[in-house]
Simulated scan of single mutants.
Amino acid sequence: MTQTVLPGAVDWTGDNPFVYLKTDPAGDWSSLSLFFRITSSVHGTGHLILVVTDPYEADLAKAIGLTDNEPLARFLIDDFASHFALFRPTQALKNPTLHTNAVFTQSLGDSEWVESATDDTAQTTIAMRWQNLGAPFAVHQPKHESGTTRHEMLSVFRPAQSGTVEVNGTPLPGATVERDFFGRRAQSAAMALSETWIQA
């Protein structure tokens, strides 16, 4: 009989879109940004916007996060983001600046999807934008291919034609670039929807 139920515990499920920017298309990434909207996890529900600038410059690399659930945010950073391929080389996630009183908003239009967060106590606002989303496609990554190599990952991706990130109203420098993405070519910005990480 075909097995229809995956046996592992679900660490989290939700949305995890990203925007990765380069100032030089042939150079290293100038910033790596992730958004999490978690609908179920071992640390409850909540949100996190995480922005790493100059990730591979030892003296310049910085990570800032806005969240409404600090234990969840630290779990996502320590157990997941830190293990994702592009984030592994950076030292910034060892000691991120994390503001924990953020309020999150979402704006959906015909050609633009915006996720933003504001922490009035820290006087910090971050907005991530994805423009001109493509058709969705589903992915199932086995353990040995996933970002942590400890989980199976399922997700629905919608690549964007472009993406931007603003911190306190100022756009981060750089632009998305075309790259290989699950057997196709796409810009380095995409929605990752209904993403689920299952212990393998």
Rank of each mutant, 00 (worst) to 15 (best):
P136G: 11
T13H: 05
A160K: 01
P171T: 10
E70T: 11
A81V: 11
T149R: 15
V10K: 11
R158W: 03
A102F: 05
A127P: 05
V51T: 10
V51W: 01
H47I: 09
S31C: 03
Q199T: 14
E145P: 02
F157V: 03
L98C: 08
D24E: 12
L60R: 15
V177D: 03
P17R: 09
I198W: 08
F181Q: 08
A9S: 15
T90N: 08
F84P: 04
F84E: 13
H47E: 06
G65C: 04
S33R: 05
T164F: 02
L66E: 03
F182E: 10
I64V: 11
T45Y: 00
I198C: 05
T39L: 08
P136Y: 00
I77L: 10
A58M: 12
T23C: 00
G44Y: 10
P96H: 04
S31R: 04
A85M: 10
T105W: 12
Q123V: 07
G134M: 06
D110S: 15
L172N: 06
N168H: 10
M128C: 09
D68W: 05
T100N: 14
L108I: 13
P173K: 09
S111Y: 13
A186T: 05
L6P: 07
H83R: 15
G44F: 05
G174F: 04
G8N: 10
R179P: 06
T97V: 12
L48Y: 00
Q91A: 15
T149H: 15
L48K: 00
P142W: 04
F35M: 06
F87Y: 10
A85Y: 13
I38Q: 01
A192H: 01
A85T: 14
I64E: 05
G27D: 01
N16G: 06
Y56N: 06
F181H: 11
S40A: 15
A117N: 12
L93Y: 02
E166C: 07
T90E: 00
V165C: 03
F84T: 14
Q199F: 11
E115R: 05
A138L: 14
F35I: 07
L76W: 03
R185I: 15
D180E: 15
Q91N: 15
T105D: 14
N132W: 09
A81T: 13
G147L: 07
S31N: 03
A135V: 11
P17Y: 03
R129C: 12
G169P: 09
V177N: 02
V19Y: 01
P173G: 11
F18H: 05
T124L: 15
I38E: 00
L133R: 02
P55F: 09
T176Y: 02
W12K: 04
A61K: 03
S155M: 06
S194Y: 15
S33G: 07
P96N: 04
H47M: 09
A190I: 00
